[in-house]
């Protein structure tokens, strides 16, 4: 992990970070393609992404459906095999680790899934579900068994008396709490969240967001937080990376992204978010044209050019590099990047 500082365009505030012990998770030039058989171009879900996550930090990864953010997360936790690139965890290259070698990594790197209905085994009780990671790592007894599970239930706001119930007896919000408790039971350092609140009701969403913020404060966790909802990411993340069609188009501190988006896509994305205030209805906003092209045949040059109002010939032939164009620690991948005052919410 010494040769790679040069590529660290992404991790804005971490120029020398690869040797620092605070870096927990890092992916480098990660590529994940899904082959669809002979002669058919593969789906290039993730196509060269570098990211790093530091101790206690919350990194938000936003983008629309099909942009590859979920695939990136799943590849980073080694649920999907990368096509190319490397994954580092606490200074250790885990790209090629087998299941046994991964065991200690798994203990510190957990994941919470999107769908609270599909992510819990319907044939296990809530208590068994939460205890399962402990049993897999042969730590159930050592960790305190049932008492430990009950403790976690309380931590995430569930009634420990409900340990014996099955998932279908809980509401969506409560199920997501079970999923969170399961991710916490091994005392991890990093949790990857894949759209943890997007399938929840509005009034439940705030409860879970608060829970995630509290847990992070209490346990000093680092989050990789994936979402399509920019307002949720804004509330949780310290740093934000915006993804489009398999690549990262802009990254930076939360404030920088939300208040001075540089990339036209980020600007369009922010402008498209409906604002719950009718008096702001007539604000001027850039609108991205059309829809996401297929990831099997991404446009040449800049991938956003087919929807961009700034695109010209240069964008069609020359892929813009993700770099800090204005020297304020806020890299973007656009030839014509220019700060634009975002519409405040």
């Amino acid at each position: 992990m010494t040769t790679t500082e040069a590529r660290e365009a992404v991790a804005a505030h971490s120029e020398a970070s690869s040797s620092e012990p605070t870096e927990l998770l890092r992916v480098e030039d990660l590529v994940t393609w899904f082959s669809r058989g002979r002669g058919i171009p593969p789906v290039r879900a993730v196509d060269g992404v570098s990211l790093s996550l530091h101790k206690g930090e919350a990194l938000g990864l936003v983008g629309e459906s099909g942009c590859g953010k979920t695939t990136l997360a799943r590849t980073a936790v080694r649920l999907i095999e990368p096509t190319a690139g490397r994954i580092w965890f606490k200074g250790q290259d885990i790209t090629e680790h087998g299941r046994r070698q991964l065991a200690p990594v798994r203990r510190s790197l957990q994941m919470v899934f999107q769908d609270p209905y599909a992510s819990l085994n319907p044939r296990m009780t809530a208590g068994e579900i939460v205890a399962q990671p402990l049993r897999i790592h042969h730590r159930y007894r050592h960790a305190g068994g049932r008492a430990k599970v009950a403790e976690l239930f309380e931590l995430v706001g569930l009634d420990p008396d409900h340990l014996g119930r099955f998932p279908h007896e809980f509401s969506g919000g409560q199920r997501q709490r079970i999923g969170i408790a399961r991710a916490l039971v091994l005392d991890p350092e990093v949790i990857v969240f894949d759209e943890p609140v997007s399938s929840l009701d509005v009034s439940i969403r705030a409860q879970i967001i608060n829970l995630l913020a509290d847990l992070r404060d209490e346990l000093g966790l680092a989050y990789l937080f994936i979402a399509h909802d920019l307002s949720v990411v804004r509330h949780i993340a310290d740093r934000v990376a915006v993804m489009y069609l398999g690549v990262i188009v802009e990254t930076g501190e939360r404030r920088a992204i939300y208040q001075q988006p540089m990339h036209p896509y980020t600007q369009a994305l922010l402008a498209a978010v409906p604002i719950p205030d009718p008096s702001r209805r007539d604000r001027a906003r850039p609108l991205a044209a059309g829809e996401l092209p297929t990831a099997a045949r991404p446009p040449s040059g800049c991938r956003f050019r087919t929807r961009c109002w700034k695109a010209d010939d240069r964008c069609a032939c020359e892929p813009p590099e993700l770099m800090d164009r204005f020297d304020h620690g806020h890299p973007s991948a656009c030839h014509y990047a220019a700060p634009r005052e975002a519409v405040e919410r």
Binding site: R107, S119, Q132
Partner: peptide, 13 residues
């Protein structure tokens, strides 16, 4: 299904 992924992330064989 996601619950199988969840077990895999936890390190299940």
């Amino acid at each position: 299904r996601e619950f199988v992924d969840a077990a895999r992330v936890a390190g299940a064989s």
